[in-house]
Computed example of a mutant assay.
Amino acid sequence: MGFALFLATVLGMEGFAYVMHRWVMHGPGWFLHKSHHRPRTGNWELNDLYAAIFAVPSFVMLLGGVHLGWWPGFAWIGAGVAAYGAIYFGFHDIIVHRRVGHRYVPRSRYMKRIIQAHRLHHAVETKHGTVSFGFLWAPKPEALKAELNRRGNAGVRAPAGDRDRQAA
């Protein structure tokens, strides 16, 4: 029962992450998240506060389920939330954004798809007009590109060469 609860939580967190990313981070929480859609100037960005914010419920459930005599299922749920956070950190911060140096080159169709979907999400610099809000599951890149085109590419970042010419 406990391990099933753990797995269900890890899987369910993708839906929760989608909702939070789509309607909170790209909504009222944009004041923190916009730092993630801009070039990073150091090791940290305001968006990193979301990791601490989302860790609090996991910590509380683990503490309650293990030490405070709450229903033991809370420990499994808290562990599932923590596991999703670790998976997310590995995929998002290490593999996609390369915040830790590595030599990993994605070869599987799955990894190429989620990385490309996330890059298409970041092609839009504004709060609105972005595509692909999940992370461990993503629509096909062709569908995301078509959606960006359908929206007239509003908010899409200019290619690096074009930005350099405009700045000159």
Score class of each variant (00 low, 15 high):
128 H>W: 10
128 H>M: 10
14 E>G: 07
3 F>N: 05
62 L>S: 05
91 F>D: 10
50 Y>Q: 01
15 G>H: 09
38 R>Q: 15
28 P>V: 09
44 W>V: 14
23 W>Q: 03
59 F>A: 07
5 L>W: 10
41 T>H: 11
138 A>E: 04
58 S>W: 02
14 E>F: 11
138 A>I: 08
123 A>G: 09
88 Y>I: 01
108 S>N: 08
145 K>H: 11
44 W>L: 13
58 S>E: 04
162 D>E: 15
98 R>V: 11
61 M>L: 15
163 R>E: 15
11 L>R: 08
22 R>L: 07
109 R>P: 10
97 H>C: 02
151 R>E: 10
50 Y>G: 00
133 F>Y: 15
126 T>Q: 07
86 A>N: 09
55 A>W: 14
35 S>D: 06
162 D>Q: 15
28 P>Q: 06
124 V>H: 04
101 G>R: 14
96 V>W: 02
42 G>P: 02
122 H>E: 01
149 N>Q: 15
92 H>E: 06
34 K>F: 02
49 L>R: 00
134 G>V: 03
60 V>Q: 01
15 G>V: 10
66 V>Y: 02
56 V>Q: 00
88 Y>S: 02
136 L>R: 07
88 Y>N: 07
84 Y>R: 00
118 H>D: 04
144 L>R: 00
162 D>L: 14
86 A>S: 13
7 L>G: 09
41 T>L: 12
22 R>M: 06
85 G>E: 06
106 P>Y: 07
31 F>W: 13
62 L>M: 13
151 R>N: 13
124 V>S: 08
8 A>G: 14
22 R>H: 11
57 P>Q: 07
124 V>D: 06
166 Q>R: 15
117 A>T: 03
82 A>F: 00
145 K>A: 14
127 K>G: 03
72 P>V: 03
109 R>D: 14
17 A>E: 06
3 F>E: 05
115 I>S: 04
61 M>S: 06
7 L>M: 12
113 R>D: 08
39 P>I: 04
139 P>G: 10
95 I>V: 15
15 G>P: 05
138 A>M: 10
40 R>I: 08
63 L>Y: 09
47 N>D: 14
146 A>Q: 15
161 G>S: 15
97 H>Y: 09
38 R>S: 11
125 E>M: 09
129 G>A: 08
39 P>L: 09
159 P>C: 09
82 A>L: 08
15 G>F: 04
164 D>S: 14
35 S>M: 04
2 G>W: 00
54 F>N: 03
109 R>M: 09
137 W>A: 06
70 W>P: 01
36 H>G: 03
46 L>A: 13
159 P>R: 13
71 W>Q: 12
87 I>F: 07
165 R>I: 13
91 F>H: 11
73 G>D: 05
94 I>Q: 01
34 K>Q: 11
53 I>W: 07
77 I>F: 00
143 A>H: 11
99 R>Y: 13
25 M>H: 04
35 S>E: 02
160 A>P: 13
166 Q>S: 15
83 A>I: 02
159 P>G: 09
108 S>E: 03
20 M>L: 14
75 A>M: 00
84 Y>T: 00
77 I>E: 00
51 A>Q: 12
12 G>R: 02
101 G>E: 10
154 A>K: 12
58 S>F: 03
98 R>L: 08
120 L>C: 04
126 T>G: 05
84 Y>A: 00
51 A>E: 12
97 H>S: 03
86 A>M: 13
147 E>H: 09
122 H>P: 03
131 V>S: 04
54 F>M: 06
16 F>K: 06
130 T>L: 03
9 T>Q: 03
136 L>K: 05
